[in-house]
């Protein structure tokens, strides 16, 4: 049986009945690291709040660890860990007091499940007598993760755990999640950062309360239908403007120092020959030098999740 099963959940807010979650269905296997990827306001937090029994859905059914979110909400509260997007621990209690409070709430002790949080806790242990409110952003997140883990939950919900955290801590955080997977804990994590998507076993791309696609990151990338080229020249802004007028261009957007240009494939979806690649590269180069660009670099590139997301949105 899957750890989390969601069946066409709908949730609307306000008088205008704006759909925060619009008939979403998915399931997460036991021990899987599942990512909800989407921009702000996509409905990620609403899904979390429904699954953690904080919010009743307007329609649809869902179960967590085999328990219905409406009927057996109390049983779910015993066995899930939830880390809200906003830091929600007691700022005026110390690191250790927070941790032992949440341990006792679930009828356990820090000692009992120490091995579970050891890797993470060891990093904040030097500050265990410090008030939680006085910790830095990354350390707050680590503490929050410890508190959500201390009762050895079967399902862990992490709502944007890396938002506002520096790149090094973000990387560490994801490594911690990978290690937790080995403990057979099902993890559902949400993030607005596309680059974090590949770290999940499976992801769901979500926009305006709808699932655009849900699959492993690899197959989502693999199903990208177009050919993608990274283009660079001295003036990015005018480059984007003129690439939009390129004859076979489907879309183009800035991507780091490059501009990603997607081109309609001449043959079947996803299959290109080196010769075709070469021809396309030359075509783009010629087109740009005709337009008066200097220092032109054009190369074939592999799509990322971000490219897929933009493709799905268009």
């Amino acid at each position: 049986m899957d750890a989390v099963i969601v069946d066409s959940i709908t949730k609307t807010y306000g008088k205008e009945k704006t759909h925060a979650v619009n008939g979403v269905s998915f399931s997460v296997k036991k021990g899987e690291l599942f990512g909800l990827i989407g921009p702000d306001g996509a409905g990620k937090t609403s899904i979390f709040r429904v699954l953690t029994t904080l919010l009743l859905p307007d329609s649809g059914r869902a179960s967590v660890d085999g328990f219905d979110i409406v009927k057996d909400f109390r049983k779910i509260r015993d066995r899930v860990g939830y880390m809200p997007g906003k830091f929600s621990l007691y700022q005026d209690l110390t690191v250790e007091e927070n941790l032992s409070f949440f341990a006792t709430v679930f009828g356990t002790t820090i000692k009992e499940n120490y091995n579970l949080i050891k890797d993470i806790y060891i990093q904040i242990e030097p500050f265990k007598d410090r008030r939680a409110g006085k910790l830095s952003g990354g350390m707050k997140q680590k503490l929050a993760l410890c508190c959500a883990l201390i009762h050895k939950p079967s399902v862990l919900f992490l709502d944007e755990p890396t938002t506002g955290v520096d790149p090094v801590s973000r990387k560490e955080f994801w490594e911690m999640l990978r290690r937790l997977r080995e403990q057979e804990i099902t993890i559902i994590v949400s993030t607005p950062y596309m680059d974090e998507a590949t770290r999940c076993d499976r992801i769901a791309l979500i926009q305006n309360g709808n699932f655009l696609s849900a699959d492993t990151p690899e197959s989502i990338i693999h199903s990208y239908p177009d050919m993608l080229y990274a283009v660079k020249a001295e003036n990015i802004y005018t480059l984007i403007q003129s690439l939009k007028n390129f004859e076979n261009a489907l879309s183009c957007h800035a991507f780091g120092e490059y501009v990603h240009l997607s081109v309609k494939p001449a043959l079947l979806k996803g299959t290109t020959t080196p010769a075709e690649d070469h021809k396309n590269t030359e075509d783009i180069k010629n087109y740009l030098s005709m337009a008066g660009f200097k220092d032109i670099v054009v190369k074939k590139t592999e799509p990322t999740i971000e490219d897929c997301f933009i493709k799905l949105l268009s």
């Binding site: 509260r77 899930v80 830091f87 679930f106």
Partner: peptide
């Protein structure tokens, strides 16, 4: 206001 009640609500309290 500080959101701690959310965290408490997801516990068996």
């Amino acid at each position: 206001e500080s959101g701690t009640i959310e965290q408490i609500n997801v516990t068996p309290i």
